[in-house]
C-alpha cells in the first residue's frame, strides 16, 4: 500500500496506517466502485493558527489504497478595506479596564437572535387603501359580533361570504356604494384601452367580489401567536369581540395531532378595532402565556 503525502507545508505526523482488507473478491473486482470500503473523509481543524487538514482515501490506478492528506491554511479576509492607520490601530495595546479583562467576562457577544429589518408592511401595498372598505363594512357588522357574518348580505350565522346566495345581487350595489372615486377611474382605464386580455377579476363591474374581498380580509387580519394549546376559536372570539365586530376567527390546528398549533388569526371588520386590539392584547397574559398580537402580513402573491 502506498501512501502519498501532498501536504502543502510538508508536515504530516500521522504514521502510515497499514490497513489490510482480506476480502477474496477485492482483486477480482478491481476497477469497480469499491469506494464504500474506504474510510470516510476526515476534516481536522481549522485550528487556532488557521491550519486545516483534510484526509481522504481513494484507490489509485493500480488498485492500491492511497491516503491523501491535504493541509491548507485558512485565512479570514476582511471585506472592508482598512486604511493603514486603521490597521495600525488594530495592534494597539489594550488600556484602562480592558487590560485586566477576564477571558470569561464575555463583554462582546454575537446575538443568538437573527434580527431583520422589519418592514412596516409588505412591499407594494399602499397604506391608505383599507379605510374606505372598513367603513362600509362597519354598518353591516353593527348588530354585534357574531362569528359567522356574511359580508355581502350581512346575515349572521347563516352562511359564509363565499356561500352567500345573494352574492351576485350584492356585488352590484356594493360597487356603487363604497367604491372610492379614485378606484373607479383606475378601473375604467384598465377596462378600456387595448383589446388585450383582461382577467375576470379586473373587468369592470366584476372587480369587487373576488380579489378585493380577499384583500379586505387580509387588511384587518390580526395574527395571534403564543396561544396555549387549549385555546379554541370560541375562546379567541370571546377575547377579541370586546374590541369590535369580528368577522372571522381561526385557530391553526395540527392535522395529525388535532392539537392547536399555538397561533391563530382574527379578522376585524374595522381597522381601528384591530389596531386597538393589537395595542391592548399584545403582551397580554392569557392562559399562563403572554400573547403576541400583531398585524398578519398580507401574502405577497
Amino acid at each position: 500500500m502506498a501512501l502519498v503525502d501532498r501536504s502543502g507545508s510538508g508536515w504530516n505526523s500521522n504514521p502510515p496506517k497499514a490497513e489490510k482488507i482480506r476480502w477474496g473478491e477485492l482483486d477480482e473486482d478491481d476497477g469497480e466502485d469499491l469506494d464504500f470500503l474506504l474510510p470516510p473523509r476526515q476534516v481536522i481543524g481549522p485550528e487556532e493558527n488557521g491550519i486545516k487538514k483534510v484526509i481522504e482515501y481513494k484507490f489509485n490506478e493500480d488498485g492500491n489504497k492511497v491516503k491523501i492528506t491535504t493541509t491548507t491554511r485558512v485565512r479570514k479576509l476582511a471585506k472592508a478595506r482598512l486604511s493603514k492607520r486603521a490597521v495600525e490601530r488594530r495592534s494597539w495595546a489594550k488600556f484602562g479596564d480592558a487590560v485586566h479583562e477576564d477571558v470569561g467576562s464575555r463583554l462582546t457577544m454575537v446575538s443568538t437572535e437573527e434580527i431583520l429589518l422589519e418592514r412596516p408592511r409588505a412591499p407594494g401595498t399602499k397604506a391608505e387603501e383599507t379605510k374606505i372598505a372598513g367603513d362600509s363594512l362597519a354598518q353591516l357588522g353593527k348588530g354585534g359580533a357574531v362569528l359567522m357574518v356574511c359580508r355581502t348580505c350581512g346575515k349572521k350565522g347563516d352562511h359564509w361570504t363565499s356561500r352567500c346566495p345573494y352574492k351576485d345581487l350584492a356585488a352590484q350595489t356594493d360597487a356603487f356604494v363604497d367604491k372610492p372615486p379614485a378606484a373607479e377611474t383606475t378601473v375604467a382605464t384598465t377596462g378600456t384601452g387595448k383589446a388585450a386580455y383582461v382577467p375576470p377579476g379586473m373587468r369592470p363591474g366584476a372587480e369587487r367580489v373576488g380579489s378585493d374581498m380577499r384583500r379586505r380580509n387580509e387588511e384587518n387580519s390580526v395574527r395571534v401567536t403564543n396561544l396555549s394549546e387549549d385555546t379554541r376559536e370560541p375562546d379567541l372570539h370571546e377575547l377579541f369581540r370586546t374590541f369590535g365586530p369580528v368577522s372571522r376567527v381561526y385557530v391553526a390546528i395540527d392535522q395529525k395531532t388535532g392539537m392547536s398549533r399555538g397561533f391563530g388569526f382574527v379578522n376585524f371588520v374595522n381597522k381601528e378595532d384591530a389596531e386597538r386590539a393589537i395595542n391592548k392584547l399584545n403582551g397580554y397574559g392569557y392562559d399562563n402565556l403572554i400573547l403576541r398580537v400583531e398585524w398578519a402580513t398580507p401574502r405577497t402573491n
Binding site: L82, A86, M109, E114
Partner: peptide
Amino acid sequence: MRPILMKGHERPLTFLKYNRDGDLL
C-alpha cells in the same frame, strides 16, 4: 443580521461616535 452585543457599560448609554476611518467606536 446578527448584531454584536457589547456590555461594557453598567448604566444607560448616552452617546456613540465612530472615528473617521470607521474602525473605532
